[in-house]
Design a protein around this nucleic acid. Structure first.
Lengths: 165, 165
DNA sequence: ACGGTTTATGATAAATTTGTCCGAAAATTG
DNA sequence: CAATTTTCGGACAAATTTATCATAAACCGT
């Protein structure tokens, strides 16, 4: 919707890695291939993306047997924005929503104010939400992380208990 | 940031046309070339986009001298969503923000709830805001529509009066 | 040292989006 | 009817994004 495929895959992989790290504290490296297969991401493409993430020092990598990739910092210290910045240009985040080249507070496009509220919230999220926030209470399901049905609304609609007491 | 170039150009052109229509009620058609030049949109590209818009009956067109394009409905009846739907696929509007194929209320991705608020607002805007809303009080400046500095915050910062009483 | 494993890199290909061109069709004017 | 003007349609080209591959480099266990 808003991020590039590459950024989506990057976030997916980082999430996977963070959660795996939490449940396997003894093992250092996870292999790119495993992440790609678990989340059905094209392996070669993900391998490229992983290189970017390593260059930006969000991941560390080790070649050879027992090698692979691992988070370079703790999940609390990795924000969505960090991941996007490593993979996308991020210029598009400040781009005018209808593409006016001179859309500024002094000469705002007709949608400027309406959109600014949305933009502010997007920025808030990508700047504040960390991997730690996202993996908290989430669980693997078919190789992907699924958030808990926190608000109960859905379970009521489904007529089922969420199983999380 | 979120729309394709084509969608951005489409909105720009529709805005231009709506405002022009308001100030030149006597003239029926405006030429694609004029819009393209005024807003510095690649003409041939805009011409293609205009074709889509006419196919979706947002525009009517007439060939030959004194021909051109015109809004097919009144600006009150044309929403942002209508324009986007004519040129983009709009599937991306419902796409999971991190690209999970099965991101539903039952199996939400970790960002699902945070993002849902944003999505709701985006939908609200594109479904409710019409061309009439956008051209209201906006004025042409260098061929593009500029919104009034409604809230005064900016003019205070600039140390100038907005000139709008 | 060697063979197998895994990431790193650069080249390339496919797909999509963006942008351009040209000839036709249709309408207006004279 | 002829000339001009404009949209229409298909084809094409360029740029970007997405995806794949082959080979090199690093590492490990034996």
């Amino acid at each position: 919707m808003i991020f590039s495929r590459a950024a989506e895959y990057a976030i997916q992989a980082m999430l996977y890695l963070a959660k795996w790290h939490e449940t396997h504290p003894e093992e250092r490296y996870l292999q790119t291939r495993e992440i790609a297969e678990a989340q059905e991401i094209p392996y070669y493409f993900l391998a490229k993306i992983v290189q970017d993430l390593t260059r930006f020092e969000l991941l560390t990598s080790a070649k050879g047997p027992q090698g692979g990739i691992a988070l370079a910092r703790s999940p609390e210290e990795i924000r969505i924005l960090d991941i996007i910045a490593a993979v996308d240009s991020t210029q598009y985040l400040s781009r005018c929503v209808i593409g006016y080249p001179e859309c500024t507070p002094e000469t705002p496009c007709p949608l400027h104010y309406d959109w600014q509220k949305i933009k502010t919230q997007i920025f808030y999220i990508i700047e504040h939400v960390t991997l730690a926030d996202l993996i908290k209470d989430a669980q693997f399901q078919n190789g992907r992380l699924v958030a808990p049905l926190t608000f109960g609304v859905v379970s009521v609609e489904l007529g089922e208990s969420s199983g999380k007491s």
